[in-house]
């Protein structure tokens, strides 16, 4: 039982990271109906910029984390303004290819700037690890869970309590009617991308101390986040978080009781099963589209 709970906690912590990656996909998808395959690179960037800032520049963690988040957010902003906005009249597939291109470019740039070595940073500290019986919750795990909790609350507040957040929802539901209300769809798209990039960057910094930062991390984090967003029901922020937690926990249970080699396959097996059995996602509502 204790072993199971320990495995569960590990899964939840990893699942929180996947959930944050999935939130990025969801927020950008809601604003622009685009799947941003560069989203995983924001997590990669958070990690490598944090390690760079700590090990090369010698910044304390408390400064290096905001720097890493800001760098990631700035890159999201540039990506939207310079690349996607100028190509907005292209067809959908072209835009998706562009995001893949951006992902590869960021990966290459990170390898050039920060090198190809895997690097570690110390844990954030301050929060002590919690020991309940023989089950322990690591300090960094508590940081990760708390961050996701605060982030969810902030996003809930933004999208359901502020006019600005409601305008973003309106622009995603009825883009034309929103424009007729004076809401700029371009602005909503930029803000969505900055939010996704900042959340991704933050998730990347949080996981850097427990699973080394490397320029290669973006692809698998992106795919896991994408799977989580789809499993939860694409476009649904709560579903994104639940999807992330589900994949994290099932991966962890698989690694603990079956074999860790199957861990990565299992996330995608879940994705395939959900797409076959419940295509609208676990938290999604059935969509009836008029032809």
């Amino acid at each position: 039982m204790e072993v199971f709970i320990q495995i569960l906690i590990t899964g939840i912590v990893v699942g929180c990271i996947y959930g944050m990656a999935a939130l990025g996909f969801t927020i950008v998808y809601n604003a622009t109906k685009l799947i941003n395959f560069a989203n995983g690179e924001f997590l990669m960037l958070g990690g490598v910029v944090l390690t760079g800032a700590v090990t090369i520049a010698g910044l304390p963690t408390g400064v290096a984390v905001p720097v890493a988040v800001a760098v990631s957010a700035a890159i999201g902003w540039v990506m939207q303004r310079v690349i996607l906005e100028n190509a907005r009249h292209s067809d959908h597939l072209t835009l998706v290819m562009l995001t893949i291109g951006v992902a590869l470019a960021l990966r290459g740039a990170a390898a050039l700037v920060f090198g190809r070595d895997i690097s570690f940073v110390p844990e954030f500290g301050f929060i002590p690890l919690v020991l309940v019986g023989n089950v322990y919750i690591p300090s960094q795990g508590i940081w990760i869970m708390l961050t996701l909790a605060v982030l969810s609350l902030a996003l809930w507040y933004l999208f359901s309590r502020t006019l600005f957040g409601k305008a973003m929802r309106a622009a995603s539901q009825e883009p034309r009617a929103a424009a007729l209300c004076g809401i700029e769809p371009k602005k909503a798209a930029v803000i969505a991308m900055i939010m996704a990039a900042a959340i991704g960057g933050l998730a990347g910094t949080l996981m850097a101390p427990i699973s080394a930062a490397s320029y290669e991390n973006g692809i698998f984090l992106g795919l896991k986040g994408f799977a989580a967003a789809v499993v939860g029901g694409l476009g649904n922020p709560l579903g994104a978080i639940l999807g992330g937690l589900l994949i994290g926990v099932i991966e962890s249970v698989t690694a603990g009781y079956v074999a860790s080699g199957f861990k990565d396959a299992i996330g995608f097996i879940i994705l395939i099963l959900v797409l076959i059995l419940r295509p609208q996602g676990l938290a999604g509502r059935a969509v009836i589209s008029r032809v």
């Binding site: 006019l163 409601k166 929802r169 034309r176 007729l180 209300c181």
Partner: peptide, 21 residues
């Protein structure tokens, strides 16, 4: 617009508030 295009998930009051965005 034709077909009204209200923001269906938002409340009546929220729709009106967005009209004055």
């Amino acid at each position: 617009p034709e077909g009204r295009r209200v923001f269906s998930e938002l409340s009546v009051e929220e729709n009106l508030q967005l009209g004055g965005y």
